[in-house]
Every structure is written in C-alpha cells, then in structure tokens.
Design a protein around this nucleic acid. Structure first.
Lengths: 355, 355
DNA sequence: TTGAAAGCGCTAACAG
DNA sequence: CTGTTAGCGCTTTCAA
C-alpha cells in the first residue's frame, strides 16, 4: 500500500480522470443528477445546475462516452470504410461526411481498405466492435463474411449505407441503402457523347487499380454502348504509378499502334486523361481534331488545360453529405436509411468538341 | 413479463448482439475463459480453444470494445484532428496514418477542424470523451482551453503529438512532441534559392485561408531572408476559390502593377503556383526568363507543366506514418512520444532555373 | 426535482 | 488451465 493516499487520485484501475462522482461530490449532489444535467439540463433546478456547472469547470470533467454508450445502448459512432483516404475523390467525400456530421454529436470512425475486400472484412470486424450506430461502406462488393456482418448489423438496428455505387437494375439489390450512381450507365453516357460526335473507333482506358471495379464497370458500359451502335472499342489499362505519367504513357501506346486508329479515348479518371492531353500537346497531336479525350471526375486541373477537358462530374463531396444526412435521419428515427441517386453530370469542354 | 422468453435474445437493455456470456454457454465454459481465449489464445487448453472458436463462429460474436476498454482502462483509439480532410496535403497524411495504424489493433477517430481553432476546441472535447490512447493534432496553435485539455490528457497518460509544424527555436516549445518541419526556415530556403538566382525584387503569395498560419510563417521566413539580403519583397494574398484560378488571378495582378517589377514569385502552395504558371503561358510571359515561379507542396501536376515547377517537397504521407509510429511506440512503452523533424526538400525544376 | 438500486459487457486480480 | 469476485463510469427504471 502506497503512502500516497491522495484523495484526488486514489482509483485502483481506470484512467485517473475525474468522473461523475467527483463532480457530484464537488457540487454536493449525487452522480445521477450530474448525469441528468449533462443530458437534459432543463430537468435540473437552476441553482443545482449552476453548482454542477461550476463543479464541471473546476474539475475539468469530460464525460466518458464508452461508459455512457455501454450503459445506454445508444451509439454515437458513425463508422466509414473508404478505399483510399488520400485519393482526392474520396477525400472530398470524407470531407463532406465530416461536415455533415459536425455538430450532430456523432463521431466518425474511419478506416481505409486500400481497395482490398479482405482488408474491408477485417476492418469491418474491428469497427463493429465499437457498436456503431451507422456504417458507411464504399461500393457493393464485399466478401461473404463482410456481407454477413453488414446484414447482422443492419438486423441489429445499425444504419448501413453503401456509397459511390447505385446500379439501376434491381438484380443487384442487396438490401442496403445506396447513395451514388450507376457506373455502367455513366460509361454509356460517356460513349454516347463521343459517338454523337461521329467517332467510330474508340478506346476506354481503365484504371490500373485492379480492384477498382467501378472504373471497370464504366468501361463495360462504354463498350456496350459502342457495340450497340456498331463502333469499335479498344480496351486499355493504365499503369499504376503517377496518374499523369500513366496517362502520358497510354497516349504513346495509343499513337504507336498503327492497328488502332482510334479517334476518341475515354479514361477512368481525369488525371489519366490530363496526362494524355498534355502528352498529345507535347507530340503536336491535335485535340480534339485528331483525337478526342474524355475524362471522369472533374478534377480542377482539367478545366485549366488547353483545350479544357470534357469530363463527368460526380458529386464527390455531395455523396458524403448525403450519406451523413441519411445516417443521421436513420439514427434519429430508427428506420433504415433510404437510398438516393446522386446524378453525375457531363461537362462538355473543348477536348471533345471543337470550339 | 413477456411471454417471449426466447433464450437467445432475452436481454433487457443492450443492443441485442451476442455477448461473451452466450459464447461461453455455447462452449460450455465461463465468460472469463472466452475473454482469455480472445486476448491470449495460448493460455487456453487446445480443446477448450477449439470449442470456443466454434462457439464464436456459430454465434457471430463480435467483442464489444467499449466494454473492454472500460473494464481494462487501456485505450485502442487514436484520435486525430486535421484542418481539412479533403485537401490533398492532409489527405495523404491521413492515408499515411491509416496505413501506419493498420494491423496495429488501433482505430482512428478522425475529425476535421476546418482550420478553425474554435472547432478544434469543441472537437477535442468530443474526442476526449472516448478516452483515446493517443491524440494527434495539427499545428501548434490552440485555444487556451484546448491547450489545457491537451496538457491534461498528456498528464493522464495519453500520447499527444502535434504534426505538420516543428519550429527550430526553443521558445515555441509547448511540451508536446512534434512531427514536421520549421515553416519559417522553409520560407528562408525558398527565398535563398531565388536570391541565389540573382533576383532582387520578389513576391510571396500567401494562402487565402486566413487561419493557415503555417503558410503565413513561410511567408515571414521568406521576407526575412529577402530583407536580410537587401532584396525587396512584396506580399500578396491569393483568393479563396479554385486554387488554380486564384493563382492565375495573382499573376494578372502581379503583371498589371507597374510599381511591382517583380522577377520572382513564391507561392503558399503548388496549385497557386501552377495557376500562375499556366496564366503566364497564356500571356506569353517567359518563365523563368521574365518571371521565376516557386511553389510549395510538390503536387504531381507541377512536374507535368512546361516549364516544370520548382517546389518544396514536404513529407506528406511520411508525417502521417511517422505520427503513427510515434504514437504506437508511446502507447506500447507508456513513455511520451518523441519529436521528429521531417525534412522538406527543395526540388529544383525549370520554372526557376533556365535549362 | 432528486435519489437508490441494478446492470450495460467486459476484464484485473486472485484463487483453485 | 479455469473460475470467482468485484468493479470500470455511466444510465435506466422506479420510487421518494
């Protein structure tokens, strides 16, 4: 037994921070009254409230959410699984999420899957341990075990949402709310735009990230539309390093292959397209005269180049905000969150349509 | 008393998920044995382990971290406060953080402050409620209340780290470990590079984000070095919209002001500098002949332009990884985390040095 | 308006 | 190797 029987920190376990009990002592009430004051200040007598308020200030009390959540069973946590937090497209979605959650009294628990379904599964397990009130996952592809966890969570009252993917066909329903758009349909839109300009020999340049199935699906839609209209499509895949460089490399490949007299190319994202555009400029290839270029994502740089890049504008931050709204509503009402289609807009600029 | 005495879900409160107790029943042992199996599988007899493993599978048990942390007092949470999650510079830091934390059994609780110290304070309060084992905040400027919370947390054994700022002078020590670099010194380096090229009339274009004091400090260092070497410095501030556009606008302002015969300009970030560079191209201003341009951040686009942009390369993801390592080490040993200078590298390209 | 009793799900300490 | 006892800090009835 230590001689240091300092009354302020005589706890045996715990983390030594002030608890409700110490605030209550300092205010001359019991713990429950302090607890009430924190949650429903109106239900406490003004004088008591003042004393408690002072005691909180004086002790520097910070409520312990773990204990609170454990006791109440209500969860304040919103957990999100994102492929890559550093990628500008998802970064803005997360920013939208954090903004949408701000001042809602909810906290965001975030993990990056690195586009790996296996990581997603293990991280989902870790996340579920926090008994989140809501779960936001990217896309609709999951391992069987992850799917089961998501279903169990939803059955247990957790709001589950899949973002960045919302196919139009009923066949792909999996019982979870979705916020996003149909990537195949977007691929079709991209093809349609180019076909309407009269192109008959096109290319789709896919992302080098093998697990980015959404980019692949845009390619499928693109190819389907081309074929439906009797045009030729070539499928390429970009490299994985710097996206601008990868785009430049793709353009070289496209140009050096005499068997591919492509007059228009669509890309999995704007960075690839911008790289190709800059390389075309270096090579003196006229855009869109000799080659039309179409991107996806509407990254700021695309607007700055000459010619400016035609692209699809997805609601990057909007998806995050919509997801925040949806889970907040679901957590408030107890209902399941509702799906929402967030449309993607075609931004026509000079890289596909001559001035 | 309800008639529905379904043995599987007869709990009164709680969230209805299976608990240790149900796993234990299914495995024919007591809760503590299951708990042990989960934390230290080696300390359980192989046969028992197998039965427990099966019971976990069968029940779909997920450990409740809130309860675990509450009981053990040990925290698995790493909380981080970042100005803007969507900004590419911080997005990569977060990505570095999540990667550094992966498979460590820690979870990242993330909040964005929007560059506001008031937000930081209130979010810090919310974060502290989770009794995080580590706290990562951006920069060394905090409100007095936030500072007190950080100190209290550190005194209570929480690992606290400030990232993206690590001044060299002792005067600015505040007792927290820091991972980053000295922004004033970087500003000096930037100026030195331009001064060494013979420039005598320079400009520093500051960020339009008023609260980004780190960009301001780079400007201070820049100005100090210029003045020390008897050169003239003009201070400008960029607009707040699209950074490329803001950079373009700055270049127009610079060019149209006859009283400012500036021959070199440094920018708070690469996007501003790239905007200015592209605008110079549009206007036929020769870079670096008539005007040398210097950025900060080493964003990928800077390498692609012609001339390529000279810039400072900060360890964007590296800071996140280093922070992860530092807090993991501190949480493991119980010591305070250690500071680390992450150097920033000058990348000389053609926008300041003619080929 | 305030308090007492009970318990959320888990783990530390000590036995056996 | 396994179990018992006690309790983490808070909130929910229900009662005063």
């Amino acid at each position: 037994m230590k001689a240091t029987e300092d009354p302020a920190k005589r706890q045996r376990r715990g983390h030594g921070r002030p608890t409700l009990h110490e605030v209550a002592d300092a205010a001359g009430v019991t713990r429950i009254t302090v607890s009430r004051f924190i949650r429903e200040p109106g239900k406490v007598a003004p004088e008591t409230a003042a004393r408690i308020q002072a005691a909180i200030q004086q002790t520097g009390y910070v409520p312990n959410h773990q204990a609170g959540q454990l006791a109440s069973g209500a969860s304040r946590i919103v957990a999100a699984l994102i492929p890559n937090v550093g990628h500008s497209i998802f970064a803005e979605t997360i920013q939208g999420l954090t903004e949408g959650l701000r001042d809602s009294g909810r906290e965001l628990l975030l993990m990056a899957t690195g586009y790996s379904l296996e990581h997603e599964e293990s991280q989902l397990r870790a996340l579920l341990g926090w008994a989140p009130g809501a779960l936001i996952v990217t896309g609709r592809q999951h391992t069987p075990a992850a799917l089961r966890m998501l279903r169990d969570a939803q059955d247990g009252g957790t709001a589950v949402i899949e973002i960045w993917d919302h196919p139009e066909d009923e066949d792909s329903e999996d019982g979870f709310a979705r916020i996003g758009f149909d990537h195949k349909a977007i691929g079709r839109t991209m093809a349609r735009h180019l076909l309407d300009q009269g192109h008959r020999a096109l290319a789709y340049v896919d992302s080098g990230v093998a697990e980015d199935y959404r980019a692949h699906e845009r390619g499928e839609g693109f190819a389907a539309e081309c074929e439906a209209r009797g045009a030729k499509v070539h499928a390429l895949t970009a490299g994985t390093g710097d996206a601008f460089d990868a785009g430049r490399a793709v353009l070289m490949a496209l140009g050096s292959d005499a068997k591919r007299p492509v007059t228009a190319a669509a890309f999995a994202n704007d960075h690839l397209a911008c790289g190709a555009l800059m390389q075309a400029q270096s090579l003196g290839i006229s855009v869109p005269g000799q080659l039309a270029l179409l991107g996806f994502g509407d990254f700021p740089i695309g607007r700055q180049l000459l010619p400016a890049l035609t692209t699809m504008r997805p609601p990057r931050a909007g998806i995050g905000q919509a997801a925040a709204e949806a889970v907040l509503a679901a957590m408030a009402t107890g209902d399941e969150p509702v799906s929402r289609t967030m449309p993607c807009e075609l931004i026509v600029r000079a890289s596909t349509v001559p001035a």
